[in-house]
């Protein structure tokens, strides 16, 4: 139990650092909110290790802390809904064994972007649909990249304990 607490804390802090690093790489010229999703790689790794509970926990801790520290509570609405649903989708898809790591990483990223667009649609109106194609492309690229990284990490890290 204490080992798990330590592991999740470390992973959550790694996520926080990743999220901070991402803010240094502004990709928002593509569409508002576009990022690489490095933190998502951690959730992905936990899913690959069959630890769905951990993936959810680390994601919730990361999103809550990140929004309290750096972003407005308004953004919490976006990131929490998208983070939870995309993690769930990635887990379900990884269960089917139909797609490889890259595949369900892309689908996770896509879900993330679609959920955020849906929330934005409700909050901001239909002008946000303009960004949808750019969000699809960014999901393919960043999701694919993160999936690729997670796959390497999964091979290198045999087990967490």
């Amino acid at each position: 139990m204490s080992k798990k607490v330590a592991l999740y804390s470390i992973l959550a802090s790694v996520c926080l650092v990743f999220s901070y690093v991402e803010t240094l790489l502004p990709l928002t010229f593509i569409a508002p909110g576009v990022k690489i999703g490095l933190a998502n790689g951690v959730a992905l790794l936990l899913i690959l290790k069959n630890d769905i509970k951990g993936a959810f926990l680390v994601n919730i801790i990361r999103i809550l802390l990140l929004n309290l520290l750096f972003v407005s509570p308004f953004a919490l609405l976006f990131s929490l809904s998208a983070g939870m649903i995309s993690t769930l989708v990635m887990w379900l898809i990884s269960k089917t064994k139909f797609f490889g790591t890259v595949g369900f990483s892309i689908l996770g990223a896509l879900t993330h972007n679609l959920v955020q667009t849906a929330v934005a649609l409700i909050v901001l109106g239909k002008g946000v649909l303009y960004y949808l194609p750019f969000l699809i492309f960014s999901a393919i690229i960043s999701g694919g990249f993160i999936g690729f990284l997670a796959k390497i990490l999964d091979k290198k890290i045999k087990t967490f304990f």
């Binding site: 797609f99 595949g103 689908l107 649909l129 303009y130 194609p133 492309f137 393919i140």
Partner: peptide, 28 residues
């Protein structure tokens, strides 16, 4: 990468291009 992954990427790129075209048409 599995074959399904490659198919997925191709499909998504196609969807993205279609969406892009739709947006460009509407943005007038």
């Amino acid at each position: 990468m599995k074959k399904a992954d490659v198919k997925l990427i191709i499909c998504l790129v196609a969807v993205g291009i279609i969406a892009l075209m739709a947006v460009l048409l509407c943005s007038k």
